[in-house]
Simulated assay, not measured.
Amino acid sequence: MPSEQELQISPIVQESVMHNSRTLYNLQSLTASLFGVSAGILGLESYSGFLFYLVFSLLTAVLVYVLRVAPTSLAGGKPPLDTSRYFRSPFEFWTGGLMNGLAGYILTWTLFYGLVRA
Rank of each mutant, 00 (worst) to 15 (best):
L63W: 01
Y86G: 04
R117H: 10
R117A: 15
A70H: 01
L54Q: 01
L51H: 02
M18G: 01
L44N: 01
F50Y: 06
F87I: 01
K78P: 00
L34Q: 05
S38D: 15
T60F: 03
I106L: 13
M18C: 05
V55H: 01
T23S: 07
E15L: 07
Y53P: 05
P90R: 02
G40R: 03
I9H: 02
M18S: 03
T95G: 14
L30A: 14
Q14M: 10
T95M: 14
D82M: 07
G97Q: 05
T83Q: 08
K78T: 00
L98S: 06
R68I: 03
L24W: 09
T72P: 04
Q8C: 02
V66Y: 04
L67Y: 12
Y105G: 10
R117G: 06
A32D: 02
A75D: 04
L59I: 07
T83V: 07
V55I: 12
S57F: 01
V13S: 00
I106G: 08
G40E: 10
T108K: 12
A118L: 07
F50A: 08
R85H: 07
L111V: 05
S10C: 10
F52N: 06
Q14K: 00
F112D: 03
Q28C: 15
V17L: 08
V37K: 03
S89N: 12
F52A: 03
I9M: 10
E6R: 10
L98V: 08
S46P: 12
L54D: 03
M18V: 11
Y25G: 13
S84K: 04
G49L: 00
W94D: 04
S57A: 13
L107M: 13
L102C: 12
F35V: 04
L111A: 11
P2T: 09
S89M: 07
Q14T: 03
Q5M: 11
G104T: 05
L44G: 02
A75S: 05
Y47N: 13
E6I: 12
A32F: 10
P11Q: 00
G114S: 07
V116G: 02
A61Q: 11
Y113M: 08
L44K: 01
T95C: 11
M99H: 15
